[in-house]
Write a protein that binds this DNA or RNA. Structure first.
Lengths: 166, 166
DNA sequence: TGACAATCACTGCCCAGACAGGAAAATCCG
DNA sequence: CGGATTTTCCTGTCTGGGCAGTGATTGTCA
């Protein structure tokens, strides 16, 4: 188990220990609260438009051409396909996206933004940017870059462990 | 309101713009995925114990003496008191916490860990620490400190805006 | 003292994600 | 060709958060 680590069986980082764990030092709790703040701010700005912060995700991905099926969007957002199905249900009920059975592969359902969906996204993008900027009020460009770098590495480390355990 | 900013009514940071927004550059989406990774890893490690990552929050706070009422815990975790009520319901159903009407102020319900709750927390803390460490696999102590620092500032900037708008 | 506001816990009603399971369709392979 | 596997979407059922509204209690202040 430990032997195949070529460079180092190396010092597994022990920043946190079970017996001395304190909430205030946990970046996990902190992350949770930051995300909550982002979401709450965005939700408040979007409530006039009958949209939520979460619902923007699929709209952005569709507009950016990151995917045209529910499964693709779910993978992009790292969420369940079941959750995505219901999300699409809500977006479709609001007339923002369209479902169209794919003729070539009749399992898949092609998704597309409606004109209303494009309009809603255009109107929301500015709020999304504003909320992100608001939380960066006293940041320099270098600090934002550093933040993104650290977050990417957290994610990569988690994904690496996925492969091992999963 | 703007006058008290001594130095500058100053360049509002424009890291993100509505018309050029791209998912890949958004620290919001990144944050969301990191948190999801943390939660999934922890949930998998805890499923044997019939516990979820979310349910550890109140247990940790109770053990640390950060609060003894639902309202206090909710404020600590930045969540709704209604959500906390239901969370306590689930924890109580599992026999991990105890409710006790406070005699002095009969509005409040005092919360306390049961022995089973303390045991469950002790057993989980090590997994919590392990998951946090796992995502920090290639981090230095300085980088972790930097991450915490940046997250704290994001949170503070969000809270500052709360006061203004709310 | 009596009206008023604040606080606390709780409840309904939403949105939202995780997991398990199922039906239909496509693909792979013997 | 024909069965096994995989993929895609969908549907329960659970946990979980946000918001609004309720009732009980406490504190405040005229």
């Amino acid at each position: 188990m430990a032997a195949h680590r070529s460079a180092a069986p190396s010092a597994p980082p022990m920043f946190y220990r079970g017996d001395t764990y304190a909430v205030d030092n946990s970046y996990g709790f902190l992350l949770r609260r930051v995300l909550g703040s982002l979401q709450r701010h965005l939700d408040h700005r979007l409530q006039d438009r009958d949209l939520t912060a979460m619902q923007i995700g699929p709209l952005v991905l569709l507009a950016a051409g990151k995917g045209t099926t529910a499964a693709q969007l779910a993978r992009c957002l790292n969420i369940d396909t079941g959750a995505m199905t219901r999300m699409i249900d809500r977006l479709q009920a609001k007339g923002l996206v369209r479902r169209m059975r794919c003729p070539e592969d009749r399992r898949v359902v092609r998704l597309a933004l409606t004109p209303a969906g494009t309009a809603a996204l255009d109107a929301s993008a500015e709020h999304l940017a504003a909320v992100l900027n608001l939380h960066l009020a006293d940041f320099t460009a270098a600090e934002l870059a550093q933040l993104m770098h650290l977050l990417h590495r957290l994610l990569a480390n988690g994904a690496a462990a996925d492969g091992v355990e999963g």
